[in-house]
Amino acid sequence: MKTMITSILCLMVTCGMATAQNPVLELTVMTHDSFSISKDVLARFEQENAVKIRFLKAGDAGAALNQAILSKNNPLADVFYGVDNTFMSRALKADIFLPYRSPNLKLIAEALKLDTAFRLSPVDFGDVCLNYDKAWFASRNMKAPDSLEDLIRPEYTGLTVAESPATSSPGLAFLLTTIGHFGENGFLDYWKKLKQNQVLIVNGWKEAYWGNFTAASKGSRPIVVSYATSPPAEIHFAKTALKDAPTAAVTAKETCFRQIEFVGILKGARNPEMAGKLIDFFLDKPFQEDIPLQMFMFPANTTAALPDIFVKHAKTAVDPVALDSDRIESQREKWLEAWADSVLR
């Protein structure tokens, strides 16, 4: 018994030492699990402003935002990074952000500025769209898909894997794409036809991509719902240097949904002034140029230069569908119910 307790105590001490942090002026950023930033980019901000940035990761984008809303009386953090346009209306309605007009907003693409009161500033964006396995289509001399309608053609039977919009954020984005393209009255018809065409619905992106996409696994589906930035990620994270991506993204008119991510200062932030400086930093060039290879999203700042791999291999959607954030929030449950009724049951 004693040996056991001593050994466990030793482990605890090791753990305590590993997690201990020295106290300095701290600013806390709450964000979702996919957030990332380079060490040197962050270090420069910390040195210039004599501040220590602490990151709190709190699950996926929805879970993190809900935690921020729940703790609004006594916020966990000063800044929240990663409200997207599907959750924006919920965030604004909960009234958890302070308006802040960063001087760097002038560098940000106009089309992304959805909150006119600037409680939320656009910081990056990415397009959810179809990806396909180039080799699979080439070896069969088949035309790769370039529209949503292609997926319901007979020769595309059993080729597509998509995520369930009920449990996955790219899945929801794809459902919204079909609503934007076919309209609220037409999208269910499309899904019924997709179902007849043996679309495979899985619960999340990991399952779709790693479990069923022919280009990434032993799967049997050469078409997957993913991101327009997945092909450059395939090159970046390849075992051996690749000249060209094994996959390609479909970015034709009205085939994509644009996810725009926002950053804002939480009401009740202990140091709103420093938080403002951090927002400036998030919108500024050094961080914006860091975004592509850290998070595989596009910078919102139009002056930010893209890395080589993005210039060569990444595409942005030509004309992504646009859906109002209020409408998404108010109709989400209804659309998902209707979708589940016609596709799952």
Binding site: S34, W205, K206, W210, A216, E234, A238, T247
Partner: peptide
Amino acid sequence: LSQPGSLNQ
């Protein structure tokens, strides 16, 4: 597992 690419898997 949340990013594409063979190295990640």
